[in-house]
């Protein structure tokens, strides 16, 4: 059976098709201001790409912040369950998941059977989220995609001490004014995220092996900083950004 997962996040929307549990195709697009339209659009695109029609799909689950606005989905499931299911799909050994999303970071601990045991999400604050990185990329005028590679070249990561995104941004601006190297600033930003997210994850007690999921996992600098802060190696799948959507498509094959 074909199943679909639609993950409407605050920044990007992801869609995945599975056939009898086998990965068929995934797709990523910007969410924009209309979550419902974003979900609908990406679903149509992925069907078209696969040469399929909607009635070929036996089950659809929506997840992410816009999960309740995806009217064509059979049901809505939270990111917590979907990231957990997606992580186990990608790597059956995983016992903990850390996801840095657009406006939410989460840490999840699974039991041996892959069921969610407990989870934590960041408090109402953009620090330690994907949005934080976006703000910093803008301040530095650096393409966010280059952040990972650049930070790995840092000799001496700068120290960013503010917890608040707005204050941290002004710290970054004064570092720029002082002539600090970009690489060092970026590495400092990653360390700041790493310590913030690891504090939340540690409170929960991470059980290895830990997987980092979500789009931010593409940034090798964050993965390194977070792994260091947690003192644990992090597993990252090439399909990290699609994890939530994969989990949704996987769960869609199961009865509620």
């Amino acid at each position: 059976m074909l199943t679909a997962g639609i993950d409407v996040g605050s920044i990007s929307t992801k869609a995945v098709l599975l056939e009898d549990g086998r990965f068929v195709r995934g797709r990523v697009a910007f969410t924009g201001y209309n979550a419902e339209a974003a979900g609908r659009r990406i679903f149509e695109e992925i069907l078209q790409e696969s040469g399929l029609t909607e009635d070929a799909v036996g089950g659809i689950i929506a997840t992410g912040y816009g999960r309740k606005s995806v009217s064509f989905a059979g049901r809505a499931v939270t990111e917590i369950l979907c990231h957990a299911a997606g992580a186990r799909y990608l790597d059956a050994e995983i016992r903990s998941v850390v996801d840095i999303g657009g406006q939410d970071s989460k840490a999840i601990v699974l039991d041996a059977d892959g069921r969610v045991k407990t989870f934590a999400m960041n408090d109402k604050c953009a620090a330690g989220t994907g949005r934080f990185l976006e703000v910093m990329a803008r301040a530095l005028e650096v393409d966010l995609d280059l952040f990972g590679a650049l930070s790995l070249q840092a000799e001496n990561p700068a120290r960013i001490s503010s917890l608040c995104t707005v204050f941290a941004e002004s710290e970054v601006i004064s570092l720029i004014a002082r002539g600090e190297k970009r690489e060092n600033i970026i590495a400092g930003i990653h360390e700041s995220i790493g310590s913030r997210v690891s504090a939340m994850a540690r409170r929960l007690g991470m059980v290895p092996p830990v997987m980092m999921t979500g789009g931010v996992a593409k940034n090798a600098g964050v993965v390194q900083a977070l792994g260091k802060a947690l003192d644990l190696p992090l597993r990252v799948s090439p399909q990290a950004q699609l994890t939530g959507a994969i989990g949704a498509a996987f769960l869609a094959a199961r009865p509620e």
Binding site: Y65, T78, E79, I80, L81, D104, R115, V116, F119
Partner: peptide, 22 residues
């Protein structure tokens, strides 16, 4: 001003999923 509906909504949904599964 200290209340964020969408964040709390997600947390409650996820929490209830955990309880239901248990």
């Amino acid at each position: 001003r200290a209340f964020s509906e969408s964040q709390i909504d997600t947390r409650i949904d996820a929490f209830m999923e955990v309880i239901r599964n248990r």
